[in-house]
């Protein structure tokens, strides 16, 4: 308990305090951990399950989703005053789709092997609820810069979960990390880890652990801390 109380008010550097008090930091942290899109809001689950059997694909997907979310939020925050409310959803979808096309073409041009494997799922970023959710919920009300930070936060929160799911899946399923073999050949491979059910179970375990950590932190705060 006392350990927790010390964590709340650390003897921090002035710069650290200033960063912690800034709206950017709070926006980022809300999306990254407190309201994490995957384990709090359960959005964007489709791609989280589909691409996580290889770490390389996961990393590419994370960067793609983060960039698309941040750029779409920022651009929509810039043009929202010029869009009539009735066509709002259409404009949002077109902005998101344009960024997804850019990402898709970039991958096809420079990372063809990865693009072949996760091709359809890159296109599906358009219907990823995280992106539309952030554009609709945050970028309609906030400044472009803050909307950009919010998108980055949501993307990083998504990446955190995806990487946690993908590491054990590739390690146990293929015995490698990012395509480099690390587990000796003598150990048997767990074929189930690269197949669909392991995606569900992996995600469920990550949700479980993260929620348990959050619940514990809440319980710590709820107790009469200082007195």
């Amino acid at each position: 308990m006392s350990e927790h109380a010390r964590n709340i008010a650390p003897p921090a550097m002035p710069l650290g305090l200033r960063i912690k008090a800034s709206p950017e930091y709070r926006t980022f942290k809300t999306q990254f951990w407190d309201d994490n899109p995957l384990f709090r809001q359960i959005l964007g689950v489709c791609s989280a399950l589909a691409v996580t059997n290889l770490v390389t694909n996961t990393l590419v997907m994370c960067v793609a989703v983060t960039l698309v979310t941040a750029c779409s939020s920022c651009l929509y925050a810039l043009v929202r005053d010029a869009t009539p409310p009735r066509t709002r959803l259409l404009v949002q979808m077109l902005i998101i789709a344009s960024f997804v096309i850019v990402v898709h073409l970039f991958l096809a041009a420079y990372m063809f092997a990865v693009s072949e494997q996760i091709g359809a799922y890159v296109g599906l970023i358009i219907t990823n609820c995280i992106v539309l959710g952030r554009v609709e919920a945050f970028a309609t009300k906030n400044r472009p810069w803050l909307a950009f930070v919010d998108g980055i936060g949501a993307g990083c929160g998504y990446s955190l979960v995806l990487i946690l799911v993908s590491l054990p899946r590739e390690l146990l399923g293929f015995g490698s990390l990012c395509g480099v073999a690390v587990v000796p050949e003598s150990l048997p491979r767990w074929n189930i880890m690269v197949m669909a059910p392991a995606g569900f179970f992996g995600l469920a375990v990550v949700i479980w652990v993260c929620r348990a950590l959050q619940l514990r932190a809440q319980a710590g705060k709820a107790r009469p801390g200082g007195k």
Partner: peptide, 19 residues
């Protein structure tokens, strides 16, 4: 388990169905 309530347990069930 409290931390697994709601969506978490749903995903476990969906995984079992996938199997």
């Amino acid at each position: 388990p409290p931390a697994l309530e709601g969506p978490g347990i749903t995903i476990v069930v969906a995984g079992t169905m996938a199997m």
